[in-house]
Amino acid sequence: MAHPDHGTCPRRHRIHIEQTDKRFENVQQDIRNLQQRMDSFMRWSFGTTIGVGGVIIGVLKLWS
């Protein structure tokens, strides 16, 4: 006697695989967004460090 869900098993697996693929795509997009935010922060941080360093050097040169 055949299993009653035998005909729908492949469809269920296909739906599960599609849902898993969507989850992986969402996680991958989240990682990309986080990487873009980190890149922006690193550029901002570097620019701020250079700017503040330049101001400090300028002030020290004026005082000496």
Rank of each mutant, 00 (worst) to 15 (best):
T20Q: 14
N26M: 09
V27F: 06
R37I: 04
R32W: 04
M38T: 12
D30A: 07
V52C: 00
G53Y: 01
T48R: 02
T48P: 00
I50C: 00
G51R: 01
F46G: 01
F41P: 00
G54V: 04
M38P: 00
R23E: 09
D30Y: 08
D21Y: 10
P10Y: 05
E18I: 08
D30T: 14
V52N: 03
H13W: 12
T48Y: 07
V27Q: 12
F24P: 00
Q28L: 11
H16I: 12
N26L: 11
N33H: 11
G54M: 07
N26W: 11
F24E: 05
H16G: 07
Q35T: 07
F46R: 13
N33W: 03
H16F: 14
S40N: 12
V55G: 01
Q28K: 15
Q35K: 12
I50V: 11
D21W: 07
G51W: 03
D39Q: 13
G54D: 02
I15V: 14
I15Q: 11
G54Q: 02
Q35M: 03
Q36R: 13
D21M: 13
V55L: 08
D39A: 07
I17W: 08
F46Y: 11
H16M: 13
Q35I: 02
R12T: 06
R43L: 01
Q29F: 06
H13Q: 15
Q28G: 10
Q36L: 11
R23I: 12
K22L: 05
G47R: 06
V55C: 03
G53H: 01
F41K: 12
I50G: 00
V27P: 00
T49N: 02
I50N: 00
R37G: 04
R37V: 06
M42D: 11
E18W: 08
D30L: 05
L34Q: 13
L34C: 06
V52D: 01
R23C: 12
M38D: 03
D21R: 15
V27E: 04
R11D: 09
G51Q: 03
W44Q: 13
R32G: 01
M42S: 05
T49L: 06
N33R: 15
